[in-house]
Amino acid sequence: MQGSAVDSQQPIALESTSHGAEEHHPDLRLFGIFMFLVAEAMIFLGLFAAYLTFRSVAPTWPPVGTPKLELLLPGINTLILISSSFVIHKGDDAIRENDVKGMRLWFGITALMGAVFLVGQLYEYFHLEFGLTTNLFASTFYVLTGFHGLHVCFGLFLILAVLWRSRREGHYSNTQKFGIEAAELYWHFVDVIWIVLFGLLYLL
């Protein structure tokens, strides 16, 4: 596998130093990912704030004539996504015990649940009675859920990448698990954003 620089335990900063014994910096990549998620969260917060403002300025919300949103399917979808956060955490527990097989199992289940969520979302899109430009509510609905959906796709991609890499014996272990933790962190993030989104769009 190429790209092992990204997944090896060596801090990138010291990768190519040649000057004798160096003290080793702790792995900073998770910290970096955390910073990245702070920035991501700010995009969502900005969009949420915009949504709330549109909502509070409009005389009626959703605008008159907007078909009511079905709650059953998105509700099930929400439950699936929330529980997938616990499932992926089981994977993290497994790798702590050096149990790569277990990790692969739990990550595989998470990927499956993520895929079901995406399919459910697409199903909902195709059966909604409004389109992107029907009215302001419809536009914000599609942009917010769509943007979140892209994040689910990316999270899924990370999980699949972990599964792919873990084929190789010894790629991950209880001391070498940056990729696993990054994917998990990202997945939790996507999950938390969805909870807020669901509350804003469907319940509020």
């Binding site: 910073m35 702070v38 920035a39 991501e40 969260a41 700010m42 995009i43 969502f44 917060l45 900005g46 969009l47 915009a50 942009v143 943007f147």
Partner: peptide, 14 residues
């Protein structure tokens, strides 16, 4: 940068 640039990105996407 981390706290404010993303909000601009959101506005520009809209």
């Amino acid at each position: 940068i981390l706290l404010s640039t993303p909000v601009l990105a959101g506005a520009l996407v809209l």
